[in-house]
Amino acid sequence: MSAPDEALLAAARAAADAAYAPYSRFHVGAAVRAEDGRVFAAANVENASYGLSLCAETNAIMAAAVAGVRRLSAVAVVGYRAATPGEPVLATPCGRCRQVINEFAGPDTPVTVQSAEGSETLAVTLGDLLPHAFGPERL
């Protein structure tokens, strides 16, 4: 795996700071890079009806999709607890987000998850995160 995409991680980190997370107080930012190089970043947005909350990864990918993106070349995620922002936390994508990423990326797409202060990094491929994925090719 190549070196982490620092620009993508910086975009994810900035998005995490903009999260709307009054209930969990857990901020997550995600940034995705389209194959054409454009970057889309977003944060988690919570709702009092918890099931209506949206994850950062899904928000970033939907913004990219609305802009016409159909393939991603990289994904970055940064998260932290608002009460303890310096405490290292790796906010790996949830199962739903892994499936959403899979819709627009292949198994070799790099996914980098980093703690807010940058002391911990997980650099894997989507195939590592979601082995035996179900995708459009199975329909």
Rank of each mutant, 00 (worst) to 15 (best):
D36N: 14
P85A: 11
G135R: 08
E57K: 02
A133T: 02
A18C: 09
A43H: 15
S2I: 15
S119F: 00
V28L: 11
I101E: 01
M62S: 11
L72Y: 00
G95F: 06
R13F: 01
A82V: 03
V28Y: 05
D36C: 12
L8Y: 01
R38G: 13
F26P: 00
A64M: 02
V78M: 02
V89E: 12
Q99R: 15
E120M: 11
G118P: 04
R71E: 08
R13N: 02
A16M: 13
Q114F: 01
E46C: 08
V75L: 11
A82H: 04
L54P: 01
A41C: 08
R96Q: 10
E103K: 12
L139H: 13
A65F: 04
D17H: 09
A34C: 07
R13P: 00
Y80I: 02
L9S: 06
E120H: 14
A7V: 08
V113N: 08
A34M: 08
R33Q: 14
P131G: 06
G68N: 07
L122Y: 03
A18F: 01
S119W: 03
P93N: 11
S49D: 12
L9C: 04
A64W: 01
N59C: 14
E120R: 15
S49G: 02
V28A: 15
A12P: 00
V111D: 00
A56V: 04
G37S: 01
A3M: 08
F134K: 08
V77A: 07
N47L: 01
A67M: 08
A21F: 00
N59F: 03
V69K: 04
N59Q: 12
L9T: 06
Y50T: 10
L139Q: 14
L126S: 08
A123C: 12
V111W: 01
A123L: 13
A31T: 03
N47A: 13
Y50D: 05
L54H: 11
D5I: 05
A48K: 10
R13A: 08
G79N: 06
S2M: 14
D128N: 15
A41E: 04
Q114M: 13
A16K: 13
A64Q: 02
A11K: 11
T125Q: 05
G135H: 08
